[in-house]
Design a binder for these strands. Sequence first.
DNA 1: AAAGCTCATCGAATATTCCGATTTTTAAAA
DNA 2: TTTTAAAAATCGGAATATTCGATGAGCTTT
Lengths: 301, 301
Amino acid sequence: MSFPPTLKQLRYLVALHKTNHFGKAADASHVTQSTLSAGIQELESLLGTQLVERTKRSVMFTALGEEMVRRAQDILNDVDDLTDLASAAKDPMRGVVRMGVIPTIAPYLLPRVVPAISKTLPDLELHLREEKSADLCDLLRAGELDVVLYALPFDCGDAHEMPLFPDRFVAAFPKGEAPGDSIHSSELDEERLLLLEEGHCLRDHALAACQLLGRRARRELANTSLATILPMVSAGHGITLLPGMAVEAGITENIDVDIVTFSDIIPTRMIGLIWRKTNPRAPTFEALGNAIRSAAAHPTA
Amino acid sequence: MSFPPTLKQLRYLVALHKTNHFGKAADASHVTQSTLSAGIQELESLLGTQLVERTKRSVMFTALGEEMVRRAQDILNDVDDLTDLASAAKDPMRGVVRMGVIPTIAPYLLPRVVPAISKTLPDLELHLREEKSADLCDLLRAGELDVVLYALPFDCGDAHEMPLFPDRFVAAFPKGEAPGDSIHSSELDEERLLLLEEGHCLRDHALAACQLLGRRARRELANTSLATILPMVSAGHGITLLPGMAVEAGITENIDVDIVTFSDIIPTRMIGLIWRKTNPRAPTFEALGNAIRSAAAHPTA
DNA sequence: AAAGCTCATCGAATATTCCGATTTTTAAAA
DNA sequence: TTTTAAAAATCGGAATATTCGATGAGCTTT
């Protein structure tokens, strides 16, 4: 019976991978550097191979080490899920849910949704975090988030997807420049489009929904939020596409822009909730999703 | 940081699940009963729930306990895969491969294939085990086998499938009773069919390949191997369907039966190799599969 | 009742883990 | 080159945790 890796060793390994530094990894693991060092060494001797190349001044993982870290991550997640499974079984709708939300949803939907959730699921403690889709996906897979509220389609491995509701895009023109209350999609001048910087999925979704390529969209500005784009539109620097929920939330209230819908197409993005397939709290997350959906459907609530 | 389940505890839990007996589980785990008992208790107090109902005279798992065992199994397999990953990385084609083979393949293919494998992959040590498909599937999922050589289609969860080669069915008639060298499939009298007992996938595959339902096939006998069916055919008690590899291996050599092929259809079963998707030794298993395929293609070798 | 299982409990022996100081190795700075 | 600084490996001993064997308690069977 050769003795298999310990969970502790695996934890040390992923901690080391995160920090690339024995000392910091040790701190993060609440042990001394010597302990962590010994743990990694024991793991290596156990496996009979080197996982980490220690070139002083930096730590490099071998190919095998990287793969090992990936698997170790999954294993540790699964183990953590075990305790979740137990507490979820005791009282499914109680406990902490760590939710990630993308920046083009968070400020517009959360103020409406969070109070509704604490009314519907009073024992659920929401921890929120706002990042771009790709980062949230990584956090989800690393087990640092339980669910992610985002706009699909967005590929996040084999996570479980729960579509919630569609969010309709509208166009914003400088005051008085709109061709009418509703426009034909061909009336969108792509060269005047102001969009969020690359990496925001809103950019891709808006372009796709409006059947545009975005090749010719203006890029000179790296806009980081819708709130910074609107004043530019108002100042006549261009036009933009807005998610309906942002308008409903009043993003245009003190800004002079014309909001128009489309006459020929109904461009939307689908808002959805995802979680790891192995997470045993799926029923809780479904309830959460339902709460979000119904809160979003009743703007006045 | 509440400290998560230990691998040891998980091992104790699955051992207990296997034996349904603290003492035996302890033996299997090479610890005393008190240690195992304490381990299970610690796990339960850690999770805050009961996993096992101890009614004297028997051990029952709660619903949560069962689910926990399932997950624990997977986790332990994944952890074991880690060490496999390491040794496979060092020398992929070396080491033990535990292969399960179904009874309608093993006696006909292995004598030809095993020597070829030890020539092609001399450092691979094959451990063989013969069981019915369903049992092999369980063993594979439980991590007690690395690969299974079987006839597909057979659903074994989300295992990875490698189809190897088709094996053609022929019909066996009592000497002199065959309508000719080759027959039309409609000439098969289903009521005279002698087949293996339920549970052998050969039964299902043969019927499916010959487009029969098997509803009217004779069932009074629970035949456990092809070698017991053939003498019955020879004695005029009926007809049967044989896999080609059995005939090639000489199963009919000292038995008076007529072997005929089909003129209208080419009934086959596909022989394949499967393994757990998470097993890191996939390249080794592919090599093994290729070796089997080429050995099967060269009967004289 | 008594005997026989089975699982839980407990104290003592044992094994392990962990720390903190120190050493070694390496890279950068003087 | 020498010095300095940083980072990981090493090592002995103390703290901690694990395991065992014996024993106890609860239930069944005889």
